[in-house]
Amino acid sequence: MDLTAVTDFNLVARHGGFGAASRATTIAKATLSRRVRELEDSLGVRLIERGTRPLRLTEEGRALHARTEAPLGAISDALQDIQAGLQHPTGRLRISAPLLFASVSLGPLAAAFLAAFPGVLLDVTTDDGFVDLRDGEIDIVIRANPRPDDDLVGRCFLRNALVLVAAPCVQRPHDDSQPFPAVMRSGMVDSASWTIVDARDGVARQYHPRAVMRLSSPLSIRDAVLAGAGAAMVPLAIVAEDLLAGRLVEWGASSQPPVEVWVLHASRRLVNTKVSAFVNFICDYFAHSKA
């Protein structure tokens, strides 16, 4: 049975005629008449007494109208509520974010999101490891340079260049062969040299790191560099204020591709409205913050 035809029949019954229903809904009178006639043919009964004024329903028409108007109205209201939810999502949104992102950017981002979507409760856990979204425990993950995964979809919202920085008291190497004291991340592979595009003249030069310590957190590395322990390769975002204030000096930018930060969610055909709202918001937030 065509539910559209049942809906149109109820419109005609509610408004007391084809013409009145057409004026109230902008559906053509001929269309309403055709659909009601097709509904009658499919049911094998007459629903409306033709040629009577005012409009009169048959006994079958009154029964159909009484039993279907409320359920179809409830369905229509539900669809409208769901559509409205795209602009006004509510409920808990569970997010997994890496420690560095949570420490540097999450507080202001979360406050701005709350102001825009007060009905959503952000529930954020900090985790640098793998999170399986298929178990339903987490709605969204934020990760840097994530591995491709057919079960996940998302968007890159931030590209963060790697820069070689040091405190002003740390002497920059005079030539390509001179090693420099380097604060390196735990697990980072020793390299004979780093290719750095010099901040002064844009020329690519080779720098030879000599590890003086290894730390697991980029923020700890930054703090050690601020204390004069040596130079380090770190994401620009965590040292931007220190460079601007003169507490650190940029020797140059790495020739490596920038770090890409992605917001990811399960690759379902229909995405939860809270997830859609957050994905769009975080991308717009960082697009405007870079402008």
Rank of each mutant, 00 (worst) to 15 (best):
L79K: 12
G228T: 01
E38I: 01
A237V: 10
E137H: 15
V12E: 08
R34Q: 14
G91D: 07
K290Y: 07
D81L: 14
R155T: 07
T90K: 10
A245V: 11
S33P: 04
D132H: 03
D201L: 03
P258T: 05
S254V: 04
R56V: 14
I27R: 09
I75K: 02
P235Q: 10
A291R: 15
A237F: 13
P168C: 05
L248P: 04
L114G: 09
A66V: 05
R14E: 12
L106G: 03
A111D: 15
V197H: 09
S186W: 05
R210L: 08
Q171V: 13
G73F: 10
L158H: 13
L158G: 01
G119N: 01
T7C: 12
G91K: 07
F113E: 02
R92G: 03
A20N: 07
M213A: 06
W251I: 00
Q256N: 12
T195I: 08
R185Y: 06
V163S: 09
A70Q: 06
C169H: 10
P257V: 00
A97I: 00
R134T: 00
T125R: 12
I140T: 01
S42K: 10
P54L: 00
E38W: 02
A74W: 05
I138D: 03
S42A: 15
A5W: 12
H208F: 10
V203N: 02
H174M: 05
V163R: 13
G154R: 01
D198A: 12
V12S: 08
D190W: 09
W262K: 09
A144Q: 02
E38C: 02
I221H: 05
L106S: 08
G16M: 08
I140C: 08
F281A: 02
P118I: 00
M184Q: 15
H208W: 05
P118G: 01
E260T: 05
L39R: 01
P71D: 02
P173N: 06
D41P: 01
G129Q: 01
A227T: 10
V234G: 07
A110G: 13
A66K: 14
P146N: 05
R247W: 03
E59G: 03
L248S: 11
K290D: 05
Q206D: 13
L99M: 10
P179L: 01
V6H: 08
L100S: 10
A111Q: 11
A229W: 04
S22M: 06
A110N: 09
